[in-house]
Design a protein around this nucleic acid. Sequence first.
DNA 1: GAGTATTTAAGTCAATGCGACCTTTAGTAG
DNA 2: CTACTAAAGGTCGCATTGACTTAAATACTC
Lengths: 251, 251
Amino acid sequence: MTDKPKREGRVLPAVVTVDLVIFTVRDDALHVLLIERGKEPFLGSLAIPGGHVRDNETLDEAAGRELSEETQIDSEQLHLEQLHSYGAPGRDPRGRVITVAYLALGPNLPTPMAGTDAKAAYWVPVDSVLSGHNKLAFDHADILGDALERARSKLEYTTVATAFCAEPFTVSELRRVYEVVWGFPLDPSNFRRKVTRAASFIEPTGERRIAETGRPAALYTRGKAQFLSPPLLRSIDATAAQGTTAPPVQQ
Amino acid sequence: MTDKPKREGRVLPAVVTVDLVIFTVRDDALHVLLIERGKEPFLGSLAIPGGHVRDNETLDEAAGRELSEETQIDSEQLHLEQLHSYGAPGRDPRGRVITVAYLALGPNLPTPMAGTDAKAAYWVPVDSVLSGHNKLAFDHADILGDALERARSKLEYTTVATAFCAEPFTVSELRRVYEVVWGFPLDPSNFRRKVTRAASFIEPTGERRIAETGRPAALYTRGKAQFLSPPLLRSIDATAAQGTTAPPVQQ
DNA sequence: GAGTATTTAAGTCAATGCGACCTTTAGTAG
DNA sequence: CTACTAAAGGTCGCATTGACTTAAATACTC
């Protein structure tokens, strides 16, 4: 609705941006793409990438454009969804800025070497940010926290975990995604039973991958299912678990 | 991020609004609060209520303010959460308007007789809108559809269903909420077993309500639990069920 | 080539949760 | 007192899951 009279002069025209929390799994840890700010405010601070929405594009298109600018990856390859909007009056010292945050998930991506912007970009382990010595700019720590919880819960009842895997992938690689995002180990056998019996979660290719050691693993591609029913729940007592580094791998 | 240069003149200052999808259960059907628009565009059309975000308030505060303006109800009583943001270029013919949609759930509310605005407001059955002969203004039909799906899925894994019930309430009233929102009947006995054994979903008051007929029902208040674990899933085959009127009550 | 290490894959079993269905309880109406 | 109604509680079988064990397939070592 937009038909309120602009009485009291309190109605605001605002700047609208999109910010992206881009997650990937590398080195058995969840990483987020951060940029180093090149200007005030928060010059030199780390921040999640983003940019202005242009006047001829939808919010989703703006997010997709920023994503490919930052990662130089075909944004079709990545999972991208709107997360939440943030618009507290003081969140940007320059004025009223409403940002629509997006969550992107992708397989181990190349380090983006200075994208279209001259900003330096890095993959940073998420838990090193959250246990944060170097604080993020603006309210980006809140956004990152919300994105992490969204990702964790989406792994429970959807099939998005496959977005973290480059095709083809093995069941162990998929399990490693769950372990790294949730922060605790899963039983390999029960996990295999769950994902292979779930309808259209993963599809066998018939191929096998010869590992350096151990039995060759069967390869799979993403199935067409979007949801996991019944869900794969984080165990109730493990809900308190925190940390996003590699969980203690059971030896 | 807000540090992009305004090159190309394509960066837009936009109008930001909040729109509210307010659901309640009355007469065994899910209803949504709609207003009749008093000015162009879409003069005379039905729309979900909303208004501009003011320059000194957060998005949540703007939503809460609009909610109490429209319903004249203490917004503390209602469940209110951000739903999604909509900002397609053409969604408002007057210019670029980004709206942050909120979802509100409440017990059977009074019909708001012309709130602070002179607009007429009505409770309308949701399925009569969706099977829609009278189309909603703007992209409000999309917003309503997203809100309905959000409400349906939130009933599965959270305890928000109690937000539809005025305290104290009975198990049957709570079950009726699920049936009306999901659109199909539930087994009364299994539902009772589920909600009474779930930790802190509902708390018995010790009181009973004498009905016109049948055994008196025990009364409950909302428990402190926010999540339902394990969730109460819509049955898999019933996922295709549609409609939000009263499901066929098993006689 | 036999044995070991390692990882994948499959199987077992008890406990839990749930759908379907039935029985009992506590009130009203006649 | 009897019929009726809705609440409340119980039973039983099936599917899923967690914990654990066993088998299979490869590389490496001696």
